[in-house]
Structures are given as C-alpha cells and as structure tokens.
Amino acid sequence: MIIKINGKYYKIKKIEKNPNGKYTITTENGKKYEFKNVKIFSEEELK
C-alpha cells in the first residue's frame, strides 16, 4: 500500500488506529506519521 504525504509517495509498513480516532502510519523507512483522514493508494492505482 502507498500513502501520499506532502506530495511524496511512501510505502506503508503498518497502520494503527488510535483511540483518539487518528491513524498512525509507519512507512517502510521507519518514520511515523499521525493523521485524522487518510487516503491509501494501491500500487495499481498509481500506474
């Protein structure tokens, strides 16, 4: 799965839903981001 952050695309390693309704997304390079609204892309959609 792929996520778009600030115009760049990252591969997703893990998605966790937090009790506060936000999502914590861990990218393949180990960085964590927290979002309220998340749009996930499949690799097929990006081709």
Rank of each mutant, 00 (worst) to 15 (best):
M1G: 08
I3F: 04
I3T: 03
K4G: 07
K4T: 06
I5C: 08
I5A: 07
I5S: 02
N6K: 12
G7D: 06
K8I: 14
K8S: 08
K8G: 04
K8M: 12
K8T: 10
K8P: 00
K8C: 13
Y9F: 12
Y9C: 12
Y9P: 03
Y9E: 05
Y10H: 08
Y10L: 11
Y10E: 05
Y10F: 11
Y10W: 08
K11A: 06
K11G: 04
K11N: 06
K11Y: 08
I12D: 00
I12Y: 01
I12K: 00
I12P: 01
K13F: 11
K13I: 14
K13L: 15
K14V: 08
I15K: 01
I15A: 03
I15N: 00
I15F: 07
E16G: 03
E16A: 05
K17F: 08
K17Q: 10
K17G: 03
K17C: 14
N18T: 10
N18A: 12
N18D: 09
N18Y: 05
N18H: 12
N18V: 03
P19A: 12
P19S: 12
N20D: 11
N20H: 06
N20K: 06
N20G: 07
G21H: 02
G21R: 02
G21W: 01
K22L: 15
K22N: 14
K22Y: 15
K22A: 14
Y23I: 12
T24G: 02
T24P: 00
T24Q: 07
I25G: 00
I25A: 02
I25F: 04
T26D: 01
T26V: 10
T26C: 02
E28A: 13
E28I: 14
E28F: 13
N29D: 15
N29S: 13
N29R: 05
N29M: 06
N29F: 08
N29H: 08
K31Q: 12
K31S: 09
K31F: 10
K32E: 12
K32Y: 06
K32Q: 13
Y33L: 05
Y33A: 02
Y33C: 08
Y33R: 02
E34K: 07
E34M: 10
E34P: 02
F35P: 01
F35G: 03
F35K: 04
F35T: 08
K36C: 14
N37V: 12
N37H: 15
V38T: 04
V38K: 04
V38R: 03
K39H: 12
K39F: 12
K39G: 07
I40D: 05
I40Y: 08
F41W: 12
S42T: 13
S42V: 11
E43F: 03
E43Y: 06
E44F: 02
E44A: 08
E44G: 10
E45W: 05
E45F: 07
L46V: 13
K47T: 12
K47R: 14
K47D: 12
